[in-house]
Design a binder for these strands. Structure first.
Lengths: 206, 206
DNA sequence: CGGTAAGCACACCAGGCGGTGTACTTAACA
DNA sequence: TGTTAAGTACACCGCCTGGTGTGCTTACCG
């Protein structure tokens, strides 16, 4: 469900205390998603993390930096459990990216980019990096699936995911099925030989 | 450029004063787009509108209601200058929806939905209405173009627009060309008997 | 054991926020 | 002209925000 809930110990690795940093970031993840970044005050966040405010500001120099770190932690696990599914063909893996449980509120990067509203915000850079990483992973998989122009297909599929996320948020109704339908069309159009059911099944042991 | 800058006089139509309401809404449009809703205070807004704060609160009971009105004003002119272009074929009109000048920051409805973060906010309803209206207009045009399933195509194209808007915002780079390329594929796939004067696709996407 | 760093409780700050009260001036129109 | 509503100027409010200062307790580990 939640990608990365508790990894990465402390800044240095010593860990003497009781792990306040983890609780802070964990609470950030929950509250920022539920309420948004701007609507979550540091007081509330510290209370939820069961951490004194002073401790929070000893771990993070400012809220902006905390937000940046909150976004940065997603990076290593780009769409976890989708690209690593070896039981699926590349084509199925591309489509699996659209099988998103309706509980997911909104891509936190889109939310952050809109809420922070400043492209130079430290967190905005991480948002761009993540978006590019997703597109790159999709492109890799597209290449694996034999797409004619994998980069283009990856970018297109990434756009579909973002569109579905945004539209789901505004309309308060799941838009991912629509996006998946478009994706299927694009994938079939981009893969020259095979269409419909993927017939080329190359066992790429990785 | 700006859809609807000055229409709709006053609440009742008497208009005795010097038109503070228009200035307030005009300033809202500019500031909310430039800075976002939450980051624009009423003090700043009133200063920009050259209106006393007291007057603002005599026209709008609260900031929330002002935001709602700010969004509501877009409604009558759904994507102006696109659907009314009689010089274009229906298919060209569908594609023209993706010819958006790069200055446009972000669909204000997506921004509002994210910033307000409450589906029950008075403005959120207008956002949903607008999104549905756009999809409906696209569906109409799709039907005109002879699409097999106009509603589906309309919804798909609307999703593409939202995806391009969101992605443009996050990546700080124009994503509409990519969306237009997808749109062309979808349109050609949806119109059964080879869409009239359509030629081979040659769009360049990043 | 004792040193050291992590964490805590709490009071406090300046500043911005949305919103109001009050007393005043101006413009429109009959 | 006088009435009336629209607009103004400005001080003010309580509240919440991000962020600190200070002094204390606790846990780890050599």
């Amino acid at each position: 469900m939640d990608p990365m809930t508790e990894l990465e110990k402390g800044p240095t690795g010593r860990r003497r205390g009781r792990g306040a940093r983890e609780r802070i970031l964990s609470a950030s993840q929950r509250l920022f998603r539920e309420q948004g970044i701007n609507r979550t005050g540091m007081d509330q966040l510290c209370a939820a993390a069961e951490v004194s405010k002073r401790t929070a500001y000893q771990h993070f120099p400012s809220k902006d930096e905390l937000v940046a770190e909150y976004l940065r932690r997603f990076d290593p696990s780009v769409l976890p459990g989708v690209f690593d599914r070896t039981d699926l063909t590349p084509r199925e893996r591309l489509l699996a990216a659209f099988d998103i449980p309706p509980t997911t509120p909104l891509c936190p990067y889109i939310a952050a980019a809109v809420e922070l509203h400043d492209p130079r915000h430290p967190a905005s850079q991480y948002a761009r990096d993540y978006k590019k990483a997703v597109a790159a992973r999709l492109a890799d998989t597209a290449r694996e699936a034999g797409a004619a122009d994998p980069e283009q297909l990856g970018e297109q599929l990434a756009l579909l995911i973002d569109g579905a996320a945004a539209r789901t948020r505004v309309l308060d109704a799941d838009a991912f099925p629509t996006a998946a339908a478009i994706a299927a069309v694009l994938i079939d159009n981009a893969i020259p030989a095979a269409a419909g059911d993927d017939r080329r099944r190359e066992e790429v042991s990785s």
